[in-house]
Design a protein around this nucleic acid. Structure first.
Length: 605
DNA sequence: GTAGGGTTAG
């Protein structure tokens, strides 16, 4: 083999960087040290730093820099270090390094600033970014499109729309990356309308969107419910061949899901050959958007079986599904997964996402395990209003009225301001425990003492509470005098109370309101006919039944489900579709027999 | 020899 020259060595280092071949890179480094190449120029230093940073070894990259002769440290080597820090997710050290070289006499150039601005953005140092922006004029780089797109990205990310537009408007050359920085910057900060406006403007200037543009635009369209435009982009994606780009396909799945096109979303998901965590998360969200919690849990099982690593987005999608289905086993499984995989680590203070903790607590509370909910709650270093609300609601829901109210006092003592949700919790507690006077007091104090204006939900709780306690006249008075119009929910609660306490006259008033507000709701007809039947007015009963037939009101069967092992089993009355229905009915029969012999009624009436 | 822009949850 010919003795290698510097040019071939650098080419070899580049190939190591591209293939992340650290071992080979080290061998070449050692060869260079032995043969004196290392000292030859800043060029070899830069190539080595690049190789090490692309192989994710910043320690080695820094060693190379630190052991280089000072005269061989120039703007190339410095830029390589800064870029290396950023590529390895270390924006703060990148900035510190930049500050160091500002003092060392090395002048930054047009390659330095895009990196430094990106570092400011990644490190959430917007003010520092503005300082760098000011410095650009000194170097005559304020009109550089690379610097400009980094600035636009930074400004939009931190909500400085005017500054972003100022940079954008003044740039003499607008390339695709700059347009993308504008479009995606808006899309990522929830300004979807602006994102689509800029996208339109870009088209008018004849700039062709690339794969980065379409992902951002699809995200904005999905949020705006722009199905037709989303479909148009889908066509464009196929025409341009972007359908081989994973991020683009994931964005399409998400767009169709959010635009309620379930079939299209599922079809695209199936065509993705190598799915990543985004694909899975997107399809999970699609199932959740369609209220298919069972589907979400089914997918979770497939994901775990396929060995997919779940992330925070996955668990924050799945936990509410568990809560909804009261699927405690699945919920526990997710919680332990998070602990094992460090997704919820907080012992070292590095991660304590209150939102995720609330999702875990809410799952335990809704699944009936207040003990586990409390364990999470007590360990939280920072609790927000939602955290307290979940505990109040949970205790109330499971019959621990006094604990729920105790939580409320503790919350106020902790100087947290209760919100609308808190009072829904507190008032339902009073309703369930029968603390009528206390409940009325809360309703009266809500606005005056806590600054929370009562909504229909709060009135519903109090009306329900008065009704349950048999104070029907007072409940009716509140329905008639409250500043908000009564909803069907209010009338149904009131009607149930009238039936419970045998007040046919008020029940009839409620029933009439209900039939007027919701003629298509089968339950209202059934309730009304029960009222008439209860007081022997059978003519009216037949009348209601006839109306139901004429208006084609169909009663949807209610269903029930149970979580068992790794699955959730759904049943309706008289259902024989389950694969083990023989065993189920045999079990049920023996229970019935046992109950009959003990004179217990198994089915509540 | 070096640089800027992308998708998912609440």
């Amino acid at each position: 083999m010919r003795y290698p020259n510097l040019k071939t060595l650098i080419a070899s280092l580049q190939s190591c960087a591209q293939t992340s071949n650290l071992t080979r890179g080290k061998e070449i480094h050692a060869f260079m040290l032995r043969n004196g190449f290392f000292l030859s120029s800043p060029l070899s230093t830069t190539s080595l730093i690049n190789m090490y940073s692309k192989c994710n070894s910043m320690t080695h990259a820094l060693t190379v820099f630190d052991t280089t002769l000072t005269q061989h440290q120039n703007v190339f080597t410095c830029n390589a270090v800064i870029a290396g820090f950023i590529a390895n997710g270390m924006p703060k050290p990148a900035l510190e390094f930049y500050w160091d070289i500002r003092f060392s006499g090395i002048m930054p150039d047009k390659f330095t600033f895009p990196c430094v601005i990106k570092a400011c953005s990644d490190a959430q140092e917007c003010l520092e970014g503005r300082k760098v922006h000011g410095l650009l004029f000194k170097f005559g780089l304020e009109l550089d499109v690379f610097v400009g797109s980094a600035l636009v990205h930074l400004y939009l990310r931190f909500g400085f729309t005017e500054e972003a537009y100022q940079v954008f408007d003044e740039l003499p050359v607008r390339d695709i990356v700059l347009w993308n920085a504008m479009i995606n910057g808006f899309a990522q900060t929830g300004q979807f309308g602006s994102a689509l406006e800029v996208f339109k403007e870009m088209g008018e200037e004849g700039v062709v969107p690339n794969k980065f543009t379409v992902t951002g635009v699809l995200s904005a369209m999905s949020m705006m419910g722009e199905t037709n435009n989303g479909r148009a982009i889908h066509g464009f994606v196929i025409k341009m061949g972007y359908d081989s780009v994973l991020a683009v396909m994931n964005a399409l799945v998400d767009m169709y899901g959010k635009c309620k096109c379930l079939k299209d979303a599922l079809e695209i998901f199936e065509t993705i050959p190598e799915k990543d965590i985004f694909s899975w998360n997107s399809i999970l969200c699609v199932h959740e958007q369609f209220g298919d919690h069972h589907g979400t849990l089914g997918l979770l099982d497939s994901m775990l079986r396929a060995g997919v690593k779940l992330d925070l987005v996955t668990v924050t999608t799945i936990l509410p599904a568990c809560a909804h289905l009261a699927a405690l086993m699945h919920g526990r499984e997710i919680h332990s997964y998070m602990i094992i995989n460090g997704l919820a680590k907080d012992d070292d203070g590095s991660f304590d996402d209150v939102y995720v903790k609330n999702a875990i607590m809410d799952m335990y509370a809704k699944c009936g395990s207040m003990r586990e909910a409390r364990l999470v709650f007590d360990k939280m270093s920072y609790k927000d209003v939602a955290s307290w609300n979940i505990m109040i609601m949970g205790y109330g829901m499971h019959g621990f009225g006094s604990r729920a109210l105790e939580m409320f006092s503790n919350m106020c003592e902790a100087d947290l301001k209760p919100d609308e949700v808190t009072f829904v919790g507190v008032l339902s507690v009073c309703s369930h425990v029968g603390l009528v006077r206390q409940g009325q007091k809360f309703l009266a104090q809500m606005d005056s003492q806590y600054g929370v204006v009562p909504t229909i939900e709060h009135y519903t709780c109090v009306i329900d509470m008065l009704g349950r306690a048999g104070q029907l006249e007072e409940a009716y008075e509140l329905v008639s005098t409250m500043p908000i119009e009564a909803t069907p929910v209010v009338w149904r609660a009131f009607l149930a109370a009238c039936r419970l306490h045998g007040n046919a006259a008020l029940a009839e008033v409620a029933a009439q309101h209900l039939l007027e507000l919701e003629p298509e709701h089968c339950g209202n007809h059934v309730l009304t006919s029960n009222i008439y039947g209860g007081v022997g007015r059978y003519d009216e009963v037949s009348e209601v039944r006839l109306t139901m037939k004429q208006q084609n009101v169909i009663k949807e069967p209610g269903c029930s489900w149970i979580e068992l092992g790794d699955g959730v089993h759904v049943f309706v009355a008289g259902d024989r579709r389950h694969s083990e229905d023989y065993l189920i009915y045999a079990g049920l029969n023996s229970l019935m027999l046992a109950c009959m012999s003990l004179d217990i009624c198994l089915v509540s009436r």
